[in-house]
Design a protein around this nucleic acid. Structure first.
Lengths: 110, 110
DNA sequence: TTGGAAACCTAGACAGTCTGGGTAACAAAC
DNA sequence: GTTTGTTACCCAGACTGTCTAGGTTTCCAA
């Protein structure tokens, strides 16, 4: 009943998507599934967050899209990481680890 | 030049404020200073984020305000944690650690 | 008496997420 | 061969939290 907190941290989705594409290209729902799986089912990505994020990332030139066919024989848009995307991923990880370190300093005060 | 990433993670401010009030009451700017200091200067809280957050927290009944006088002899609004606020802090820390664990699972994949 | 700093406050813009819709295409069941 | 379910994509609108950029009042020091 209570309003549950989201299972995502605002502002981290772009980073997670880039990470999910690190090795192979994937289509939208495949990316969401992969994030959920990699996070051991802790994180969950809604479609209404996913697609806007993908457009953002594509507009920034961090991923590139191409139409293809999914395992289930349906048309699907495959995204793959660009070189700039790789750099961006590194930068975002860097930033994330820095800030979470700050938060953890605060939280760990007795 | 480049648009710097914020030195705060969206959605964590409430938790940080509650944490900063854990032991003693403090006034607004004092809370911001304390967060910055506890985080070893990694985090920084803007006034335009701080005050709205304080009203939110007060409206939720997690903190309680009282007018007082600051060290510098200026009038200041001192906030202190309520019992509900303490519970809330615990819940938010729990949630934070759960979600960041998920994110770290994702990021740590080779 | 002017200036700076401490402390508070607010409006408006903005970004990212979520809810809740929707379409199209294929597969399987009947 | 039509219905039903699933996969995959898409979008509008609401909402939340943060930031920018203003502002006021009060105190202290030059």
């Amino acid at each position: 009943m209570g309003k549950e907190k989201p299972d995502l941290v605002y502002g981290t989705l772009d980073m997670l998507i880039l990470k999910a594409l690190q090795h192979d290209p994937r289509h939208g729902l495949g990316i969401a599934d992969r994030i959920q799986q990699m996070s051991k089912d802790i994180l969950h990505v809604e479609q209404g967050s996913l697609y806007p994020a993908l457009y953002r990332l594509e507009a920034q030139g961090w991923i590139k899209a191409e139409w293809g066919v999914s395992d289930n024989n349906r048309r699907a848009r495959y995204y793959k990481l660009t070189a700039a995307g790789r750099r961006q991923l590194a930068a975002e990880q860097e930033h994330w680890s820095r800030i979470t370190k700050g938060i953890d300093f605060v939280l760990s005060k007795a």
